[in-house]
């Protein structure tokens, strides 16, 4: 099992290394978007300080969601997934290998976007820097885990890409970025309580505001951290060995 995890992680990283454009996009897109937001709100510093931390959670989440779901789908559409599953390889090992590889790529991505935001764009963070790093990483990993899970429900890359508007955008709308969650209509508020991205965004904004390790912050941390292994385990379960 561990040998399979390590072999898969190594192979996925090799593929990323060979595909310079994808790795480049993976590394710089969140930072470029942060820069755009900063200058879109030029002269409205307070707005940037307000939404900036939330976007630190959202951009890596979104990029990793798309990259992970399309990568897994490619594995399915080029026949290698079926081939792996025809052999003794386990589904869990394969998925864990993907998580390890993309998880490692995320370290770099989040490092770059944090460096650009905190120093380049002088985004002010009230709380501990380490908590910001932790939340940004967890949020990116959450996006990756959900992407791997959702890819099981797509048959083509067309479908997988459409999970972005179908699955990510509703969370985007309800996570508290556009309207604070406590001002939403009851039903929407309730719905947003069930969406993992809400906790990811809440957590990072709480850290940015004060950074005190309150009960609410712990809740956010635990929910986001727990959703990652749950999504991966569900992903392993939904990966079908047999096809039509």
């Amino acid at each position: 099992m561990w040998r399979q995890v390590a072999a898969t992680a190594r192979r996925v990283l090799l593929q990323l290394a060979h595909d310079r454009r994808t790795s480049g996009l993976l590394l710089v897109v969140p930072s470029v978007l942060m820069t755009l937001v900063r200058y879109a709100f030029t002269g409205q510093r307070a707005v940037f300080e307000g939404v900036g931390p939330m976007l630190l959670a959202l951009f890596p989440f979104t990029v990793m969601f798309v990259v992970a779901s399309v990568a897994m789908l490619r594995e399915r559409s080029n026949g290698t997934l079926e081939r792996l599953l025809a052999g003794p390889a386990g589904k869990g090992g394969l998925l864990a290998g993907y998580a390890l590889a993309f998880g490692a790529a995320t370290l770099l991505q989040v490092g770059v976007v944090l460096a650009v935001s905190l120093w380049g764009l002088s985004l002010k963070v009230g709380g501990s820097l380490w908590l910001v790093v932790l939340f940004a990483l967890l949020d990116a990993w959450l996006g990756m885990a959900l992407g791997l899970l959702l890819s099981a429900f797509a048959r083509t890359e067309f479908q997988a890409v459409q999970f972005l508007p179908a699955f990510v955008l509703p969370q985007f709308l309800l996570c508290g970025l556009l309207v604070p969650r406590d001002q939403m209509a009851g039903a929407l508020r309730l719905l947003s309580d069930f969406l993992p991205l809400s906790y990811a965004v809440d957590g990072v904004s709480r850290v940015a505001a004060s950074g005190a390790l309150t009960g609410a912050l712990w809740t956010d941390l635990v929910v986001v951290a727990a959703c990652i292994p749950v999504a991966l385990a569900l992903g392993a379960l939904t990966l079908q060995r047999k096809g039509e």
Binding site: R10, R11, L14, Q15
Partner: peptide, 27 residues
Amino acid sequence: VGYQPQRPAVYLDLTVRQNISYFAAMI
């Protein structure tokens, strides 16, 4: 079982040895 599907189920972006080494490690 060793199974060779009809379409070549390999990673086009990896080298021959990287492909074969990966599947070897998996089994």
